Computed example of a mutant assay.
Amino acid sequence: MKRILILFLSASLTAPAAAQYLFDAAQADRLTAAWRAGDERAVEAVAQAQTQAEELLAMTPATVADKTVLPPSGDARDYMTLSPYWWPDPSTADGLPYARRDGERNPEVYDCPERESADRLGKAARTLGLLYRVTGEERYAAKCAELLRAWFLDPERGMNPNLTYAQLIRGRKSIRGTGIIDGRRLGYALCSARLIEASPAWRAEDRAELKAWAGAFLYWLEHSVNGRKEFAAANNHGLWYDAIRIMAASAAGERERVREIAERSLAPRFARQVAADGSLPEELARTLSLHYTTFALEALSVARNVALESGYDLWTLPEVQRALAFVAPYYEHPDAWPHRQIKPFERGRGAALLYEAGQASGRTEWVEAARRIGCRDGVPQDVRMICFLVN
């Protein structure tokens, strides 16, 4: 961590940028005002989140070093997971070579605890941060700060700022870029720190160190072999690569880089992926095609909400509008989806996208569709709070 601070401390000590989140800040303001005014829907949504938060407040902070199997580096502080859709060959003694079964998760992925631990971290930080933002209760900020310090800043067990060993395939030694998509969970946690900046629990040294960590992570994303490979991805992986870079740049306080990545990389990348009818052909080829189409749009949602601080709104792009218009009818009626979807689709994810995009672009038909669907099925607690008007 000392080396990171030397490299990035000068950027860390600049004046803080305006707060920006993983959701539209106007929606957060709407929720806060409604909750304080006693709106029944807002009060219920926040109360449900507070009930869940009792478990979060009792969480033992996880670290990336909480593992028994070390990565190839031998360093427990290097993040390591297994690629989810690769399975052993049952006809061989050692299971090699592994073969891909798209959409079918190999339970061996749970042998590496980082994936689930990072997922819990991201969701907990978002929920606790938003609860602090709305209610002002310090206990939420204090717990969020404790979780962030343990994962990123602990001098002995904190995560090294790289994803070199993310989504490994057993039996293979080649460097892969696809594991970078795991970084979205880290990005959620990094950006959630912005929600608790007003709390004394999140100290000036915490802010400086986390900005330094995010800066080092962004450098690794853009200069590593893994990152260069993922930059070339022509499907949702490429979109998430840019979204993760945007989250890292924002957490590092690099506002101009946020806009640059959104406008010069993510926007043209998405335009190349969208067909004339608004579909995403790379995602339609998957066995979970409605899920992956939505997953691609969720990358845009995250990137868009973070990039708003730079004055750039991805929802206004015609290609994005076309893609949302293509998929919107199927969020209400997923059984009518004419492509492969081997598992049930969680409709609330579609509702959350339609609600956000409809509010942002004045498409009242999307907002009404979101109300008919409801933002409960398959969405995390912080999104349920944000979508309190359509639950």
Rank of each mutant, 00 (worst) to 15 (best):
L7V: 04
L13K: 04
P16M: 00
A17E: 10
A19N: 01
Q20L: 00
Q27P: 05
D29A: 13
L31N: 06
T32Y: 00
A33R: 15
Q48L: 15
A49T: 09
Q50I: 02
Q52K: 12
E55H: 11
L56R: 02
L57Y: 00
M59A: 05
A62T: 02
R77G: 14
D78Y: 05
S83R: 04
P88K: 12
P88Y: 06
D89V: 06
D89F: 03
P90Y: 06
D94G: 10
D102W: 09
D111C: 02
D111L: 15
D111R: 15
P113N: 12
G122D: 08
G122F: 10
G122V: 04
G136N: 09
P155T: 04
R157P: 00
G158S: 14
M159F: 03
N160A: 15
N160Q: 13
L163G: 02
R172F: 11
I181C: 04
G187C: 07
Y188Q: 15
Y188E: 15
L190T: 06
S192W: 05
I196H: 06
S199C: 13
D206W: 08
Y219D: 13
H223M: 03
V225C: 04
G227T: 06
K229S: 09
A233Q: 10
W240F: 15
Y241E: 01
D242Y: 12
M247C: 11
A248F: 04
A252T: 09
E256V: 05
R259A: 13
I261C: 04
A267C: 01
A271L: 00
D277W: 11
G278V: 02
P281S: 13
E282K: 12
L284S: 11
L288K: 13
S289A: 08
A303D: 10
A303H: 09
R304S: 14
N305L: 08
W315P: 05
A323I: 02
V327N: 03
P329C: 04
P329G: 08
E332W: 09
D335M: 05
W337L: 06
R340N: 08
R340V: 06
Q341T: 01
Q341F: 03
P344V: 11
E346W: 10
G350P: 01
G362H: 03
V367P: 02
A369P: 01
G374K: 06
R376A: 07
R376M: 06
D382G: 07
V383G: 07
V390R: 04
V390E: 02
